[in-house]
Design a protein around this nucleic acid. Sequence first.
DNA 1: CTAGAACCTGACATTGGCGTCAGAGACAAG
DNA 2: CTTGTCTCTGACGCCAATGTCAGGTTCTAG
Lengths: 120, 120
Amino acid sequence: MRIGELADQAGVSVRSLRYYEQQGLLDSTRTPGGQRIYEEGAVERVQLIQQLYAAGLPSHAIVDLLPCVSTGMVTGSMYDKIRHERDAIDQRIRELAAARDKLDGVIEHVLRVGIHHDGQ
Amino acid sequence: MRIGELADQAGVSVRSLRYYEQQGLLDSTRTPGGQRIYEEGAVERVQLIQQLYAAGLPSHAIVDLLPCVSTGMVTGSMYDKIRHERDAIDQRIRELAAARDKLDGVIEHVLRVGIHHDGQ
DNA sequence: CTAGAACCTGACATTGGCGTCAGAGACAAG
DNA sequence: CTTGTCTCTGACGCCAATGTCAGGTTCTAG
């Protein structure tokens, strides 16, 4: 599959795919003319990359973790890193939940007390 | 209180406080000489700003929401925005949880099967 | 064979929150 | 008044992921 098709199927831009490759997150073979060719599995790999990006992991961390996550092969230091990133995500979830609860507080307050117009 | 003290108490940099002011998130009075003076409540306001930033809200969204969150005064359109941001945060939490579960899967796998050395 | 679509590399632009530096003014304490 | 610390503004830098543009090459359909 060529880069445009992978981009469509994975829902990311062509630019991003080239960037992922540059970061060592994704590899491809090339046609004799130099165009990138991907295997089927690339779609899921890209989606996994997106998911880890969405979790706020910087690309160098993803470079470290990806081999483990996709193959289940883990060395000791990798294992520590995974646990560390996991905990960081967990922490982040707690912060987000706190912020959400703050907004919920406002929403509930409004439901109890009603809308206060204030101009606008 | 002056800017350095506020920075200390709120746990952010002086630079950030000036930036918040520029974004319309924080206000101050000035001494005749032009130095910023903050009231006591500023500490909590800054912490709230930090919390919303941590939740991934861009500053313009925080500008919109802050008046409501801190005063409980809400107009109809503001209410919609709050609900919208709340839902966005909730969505983000779910994404993070999915990523965390992925890592947990690897961790569990390792605990079951053991560490695979693979070079390194 | 040829037109047009898709692709290539390389480079510069952007966004956001903040670090950091320079040069100048403010202010508290002695 | 002086000195040292704090503050001021303005500007540039940074990082990371991506957009975008230019100028050229490759592939595919007719």
